[in-house]
């Protein structure tokens, strides 16, 4: 089967297709969340009776932090496609990802603060990992602010796309803030990330939660891009002729 991907670069073709996908992604997000949390809360304690209970924050902290960085990379990807091919749908995708990315960044900082209070005794420290993650949140907010500050949609999209490219520098900074080549030079309070040191049940519950968050991200980003299409294309014939749009 050959799919013509360019067909779906037109909002009129993309809009109905993603509308059908949203319930599936929502369904997967809910089922996997329930499964992952059940695994995380009820299938690990016997294995880890000596471990302090606050480790359970890992099941949402790590997936949220991963999503915050992954969504930024995807957002920049769409922005770059927009800059190269000048397709309006790519810019809409980038704009739809930003708030969800910012939301996950906030959640990773929030959950990290409560975890930090239990294990380090402080909600916040100007540690490289936390500081760089906070800056990622500011970059997301900057992207959204710049995009909404310019009235001309085309110019707003292009300016925000270039800003998102500048912000891309945050991803390696966040990554290397704890994974520096020489551990002796690391001054980070935040522990290093190594999947080998984690107990298998915890790792799997965490990975299930990551897929759940990922499915959730798909669902809400598709919901938002449909809203953006409704907003931006309201004067077009195809949207006005679309049956089912009528409220």
């Amino acid at each position: 089967m050959k799919i013509n991907w360019f067909k779906y670069s037109a909002p009129s073709n993309f809009y109905p297709v993603i509308g059908k996908l949203i319930p599936f992604f929502m369904f997967f997000a809910i089922v996997l969340s329930i499964g992952g949390l059940y695994w995380g809360f009820f299938q690990t304690p016997d294995v880890l009776s000596d471990q302090k209970q606050y480790y359970r924050i890992i099941f949402i902290h790590v997936p949220a932090a991963w999503m915050s960085m992954w969504l930024y990379a995807v957002m920049v990807g769409w922005a770059v496609i927009g800059l190269i091919f000048n397709t309006r749908l790519s810019y809409m995708m980038a704009a739809a990802i930003a708030p969800t990315g910012a939301m996950f960044t906030f959640l990773s900082l929030w959950t990290g603060a409560f975890w930090g209070k239990t294990s380090w005794g402080t909600y916040w420290d100007w540690d490289p990992r936390m500081t760089s993650e906070l800056m990622l949140l500011f970059v997301y907010i900057g992207y959204m602010a710049l995009q909404s500050a310019i009235d001309d949609t085309r110019r707003a999209d292009q300016a925000a796309a270039i800003l998102s490219l500048v912000g891309l520098v945050m991803l390696p900074i966040i990554y290397f803030s704890i994974n520096c080549p020489n551990p002796a030079e690391c001054s980070s309070l935040h522990q290093g990330s190594s999947t080998q040191q984690i107990e298998t049940n915890i790792l799997w519950a965490m990975l299930v939660m990551t897929i759940a968050f990922w499915a959730y991200a798909f669902a809400v980003i598709f919901m938002r891009v449909r809203n953006i299409i409704l907003q931006r294309e309201r004067h077009t014939k195809w949207l006005q002729n679309l049956t089912g749009v009528k409220a």
């Binding site: 209970q53 924050i57 949402i60 929030w110 975890w115 239990t118």
Partner: peptide, 14 residues
């Protein structure tokens, strides 16, 4: 195990 407040603040916010 005494960490309920911290854990439920995290899961609640999420």
């Amino acid at each position: 195990g005494g960490y309920g407040y911290f854990i439920w603040m995290c899961f609640g916010m999420v």
